[in-house]
Design a protein around this nucleic acid. Structure first.
Lengths: 353, 353
DNA sequence: AGGTACTGTGGGAGCGCTCCCACAGGTGAT
DNA sequence: ATCACCTGTGGGAGCGCTCCCACAGTACCT
């Protein structure tokens, strides 16, 4: 309330304004604003006086006023275009969120968590974006046909996507080396003396899943191995998908002696089917997963897995997004300087291979 | 979608304002505001006209202006007073976040995710709160000596805590029935014919962990069983803590034939030590965990566990918080009507018991 | 001397809303 | 006729900032 709460102006609870700080420091409103925002055009003496006043009064800028006047929000949204369930089922997201949080902790930016799993939520999200409630958007796990990136582009809202949708992704993107990670997994299995290496893919409308297939294929081909279609079964990153794919693989190629799964969760499903079929891990069949999640460590036997530096990816996304926001230009310079970051993966060898 | 389609109106990128909608509808600014905010004091005809204008122009209220004028933010913060790492290590948080997201999806409220794991982050958090950047706060996983609740109280910011800090918690709280959950676990073990039932506790400065000990004790006592101090070992919810506690229990009471652990992760640690000691699960020792997390399902053998309705707890927290925000009063009526929600638990029986 | 170009500073003019007062026009009781 | 008291409406007065223009002061040229 405007005039209501003037009684409590004493210590805590009283929220000083710029004007009050200015009065206290004996300067003008503009000068305080300059100090607060780190403008260099302030003399050292004045700056010191203002900073003292700020400290004395415990001044904290009002975000809403700032956002209104400056037409920016100091907030970014992490948009998850899936139902909440999926988001948390895969540790991938948590790790990413962690990196994002870390990257943000040095800034004034606030993180908004937004789910766009249902149509209603999409609707609302569209409104938020239209209202320019955030300065930028982080997109994770976007499927190939999602209209969201298009929309962001039209609204000219800076955005960074994790996992490009295709080789020609137009948005700034951050990715891990899916291709190289898959290669290293397959090469590891070959080095272990495995002859017949199968692959359970991820959802193939996810570009990263395709790249893993490429890495798997190329690793085999470069080693002069057979590249049998029957050794590749399509999964969808889920446990159930892993089970189904594994069952198909065993039916078609009962002689397989290694499986490279596109996620740890998928590997868990595969493991179960292998067990039920009487195959021992790693004695009869080597198993390698992807993500190096907690599940990999807790599996019996512990699962060899390809670690993605997901946390660093989160950090990288923030860095790129902040850059985009900082030099937000009249959209003229777009497309020319598409930014991209690809971070390396690492094979973590455990007992399953 | 909402705003994007109507692109070519007036200045490019210029979002329509209340005033423009008013002009279009042939009414005053105040009337439009009333319609937008669902005030009943508008005639049906006027309301219809305004709504038409809003639709035509693709009007979306400016959040910052609204927040500034109304002195509220339409945002709430989920504050995690721990390092990000801990937050994501336990599925507990993810589930809760899911419930919170679900509870929020029917409202205009935005969710801010805030970590307060380091001192610097605490500092910043304090600033946010002081700046009244959010209308309310959700606190999860607060330890007994945390100053945060106190601060929120002083700032008169509505807050709901998950897991009260003590029996006399002053904040509105949501909890699951820790006592009942523990009882049902122990009663289940007794029904299975187990005679010597040990308990590995959680961090005892967490009230819920204490309540589980109470439930364990009372279940035994009510059944006329011995209540041996040597059967209770203090843990801290972690795997490593579970290992250490289990080792101690085996040393003191090698005759134990059942263990009730205060978390699944703890149970995982206990399981490892039991294995190494040559005890078979469940043949020699029954094992029951708490949380019914993914780990429980993936353990070998699958772990019997007490399920908390964490997602519903998240929902409940939101409901309570929104209520508090809605009837935010001059703090006079505080303490009198302490709200509390306690949700039931459920024992999920698997092969480990 | 005046001219030019800085640096540092004060403060007016909004940003787009909500709040609230004023007031028109209707109703019913006096 | 007066009064009281509704309902619905318009619009002024801010909310606390940022932006930007004006301008004093200083410095270094012609």
């Amino acid at each position: 309330m405007a005039g209501a709460g003037h009684g409590a102006r004493g210590r805590s609870g009283g929220r000083p304004t710029l004007e009050e700080v200015a009065a206290r420091a004996g300067v003008g409103r503009g000068t305080v604003s300059r100090v607060i925002n780190g403008s260099p055009r302030v003399s050292d003496a004045t700056r010191a006086a203002v900073e003292a006043a700020v400290a004395e009064l415990g001044y904290v800028p009002n975000t809403a006023a700032r956002a209104l006047a400056a037409n920016r929000t100091n907030a970014i949204a992490l948009v998850v275009p899936e139902p909440e369930t999926r988001f948390f089922a895969e540790p991938y997201f948590s790790d990413m969120l962690r990196g994002v949080g870390a990257g943000l902790s040095d800034t004034e930016m606030q993180l908004l968590l937004t789910f766009a799993g249902s149509d209603r939520k999409r609707q609302r999200l569209a409104q938020y974006l239209a209202a320019h409630r955030v300065d930028g958007v982080l997109l994770v796990s976007v499927h190939a046909d999602d209209p969201l990136p298009e929309m962001l582009d039209q609204l000219e809202i800076p955005a960074v996507i994790s996992g490009p949708r295709s080789a020609g992704e137009t948005l700034t993107s951050v990715d891990s080396d899916n291709y190289g990670g898959a290669r290293s997994a397959v090469e590891h299995l070959m080095a272990r003396g495995r002859r017949t290496i199968a692959h359970i893919t991820g959802h193939l409308d996810v570009y990263g899943a395709q790249r893993r297939v490429d890495g798997y294929r190329d690793a085999l081909r470069d080693a002069g191995r057979e590249d049998d279609e029957l050794l590749v079964a399509e999964g969808d990153f889920t446990e159930e998908g892993g089970r189904r794919a594994m069952a198909r693989l065993l039916a078609h190629r009962p002689d397989l002696d290694a499986v490279f799964a596109a996620s740890d969760v998928t590997a868990a499903g595969a493991r179960q089917v292998l067990r039920e079929a009487g195959r021992r891990i790693p004695d009869d069949v080597s198993l390698v997963g992807y993500d190096d999640s907690a599940i990999a460590r807790h599996m019996d036997p512990p699962l060899t897995s390809v670690r993605q530096p997901i946390e660093e990816m989160g950090r990288a996304m923030i860095d790129l997004l902040l850059t985009e926001i900082a030099d937000r230009r009249p959209a003229a310079s777009r497309g020319l300087e598409r930014r991209q970051a690809v971070l390396p993966t690492e094979l973590v060898v455990r007992a399953s291979s």
